[in-house]
């Protein structure tokens, strides 16, 4: 049998911005995947979900213990896409202006000047977001949803590639402000990094002994390419049967006895976009129910209010209750 090369050949091969071809996009994503795999060892599946989240223009919530590589992942991602990286360590005394920026009176010009906050970056790591007060959280979440900030009645647009990786510690809950469901819905996915395996930890230790590389590698994306790729992913075809399947799944989450809050229409849009990104990573120009299923757990776990300590079996039940089209 001949090998089947199934990337699109005609119109599908053309991106919305004709500057990059489908293959060039795939090559860039593959390079980014390798780079992330190099820094976060043994977590290929997590990196796959991060890529899906990035390509679908969503934001990522990582819930895990400290020291598992969240910051490393965010930094590597920022370097990979060639964007600016910023980090906020959330504490209860963090103010909204510490995130969005503030107006400063310039004595020389006798005018107020706007000082950008960390949200004016491409990759923003909001560490321990649940330690910030709800007021501060909502300021960040407005920036995530609208991709803009408003200071003193003036709107400041954020970067088109603006991507938030927020983290929270599932164990140390004392003195925290859990994110409400409405704000959780702004995230596209929730992931857990988890501990690496022994061999990967060994590799990590070995790598730490070697002298660090002086030169940081060039970004894998050319300027504007990520935006073009994100727009391209939005054009991946979703057949009506698959959309009906998505709706049936959403209904199943709303009718399930163990789920008090099902998927919202906004969540459904996010789910479809994540499925499109998954299809792209599978080198397809159309979405299949498998794509929907592949992204279901990280998409649903962040936005469903499940009355169970372990949400995964409930999500599995939901998925198994709806026949594929």
């Amino acid at each position: 049998m001949t090998a089947l090369i199934d990337e699109p050949q005609t119109s599908a091969a053309q991106t919305s911005d004709d500057a990059w071809s489908f293959d060039e996009h795939l090559d860039a994503v593959e390079a980014l995947r390798q780079r992330l795999n190099a820094v976060l060892k043994g977590k290929a599946d997590v990196i796959e979900q991060v890529l899906i989240c990035l390509l679908s223009r969503g934001h990522l919530l990582v819930e895990d213990r400290p020291g598992l590589g969240k910051t490393t992942l965010a930094k590597a991602l920022a370097e990979g896409i060639g964007g600016r990286f910023a980090r906020i360590q959330c504490t209860p005394d963090l103010l909204p202006s510490d995130i969005t920026g503030f107006n400063l009176f310039n004595q020389k010009t006798r005018e107020f000047e706007f000082r950008n906050g960390p949200v004016f970056s491409d990759i923003l790591l909001a560490d321990e977001i649940n330690r910030a007060t709800p007021r501060t959280q909502s300021a960040l979440l407005e920036a995530m949803a609208e991709r803009q900030v408003t200071v003193d009645a003036l709107r400041y647009p954020l970067s088109e590639e603006f991507f938030v990786i927020a983290t929270q510690n599932p164990h140390d809950q004392h003195g925290t402000y859990p994110l409400p469901e409405a704000q959780l819905d702004r995230f596209a996915m929730k992931l857990s990094v988890g501990y690496p395996g022994d061999e990967h930890e060994l590799a990590m230790l070995s790598q730490a002994v070697a002298p660090p590389s002086r030169e940081s590698p060039p970004p894998v994306f050319e300027p504007g390419q990520l935006c073009a790729l994100q727009r391209f992913v939005e054009t991946i075809a979703v057949k009506e049967t698959v959309q009906t399947y998505l709706i049936q799944l959403a209904k199943a989450t709303r009718n399930h006895a163990d789920i008090s809050l099902g998927v919202s229409p906004r969540g459904l849009l996010t789910w479809q976009r994540a499925a499109q990104a998954s299809a792209f990573l599978q080198r397809r120009m159309f979405v299949t129910p498998d794509d929907v299923q592949d992204v279901a757990e990280p998409v649903l776990v962040v936005r469903l209010a499940i009355e169970s300590d372990n949400p995964k079996p409930v999500i599995r039940q939901v998925m198994e209750s709806v026949p594929i089209p």
Partner: peptide, 22 residues
């Protein structure tokens, strides 16, 4: 390969042609 073809046959829009070399 058949699995990929099934995906194409079932879910690809009609404008999406048969994968190359298939």
């Amino acid at each position: 390969i058949l699995a990929r073809l099934v995906e194409w046959a079932e879910f690809a829009p009609t404008s999406n042609p048969l994968p190359r070399d298939a």
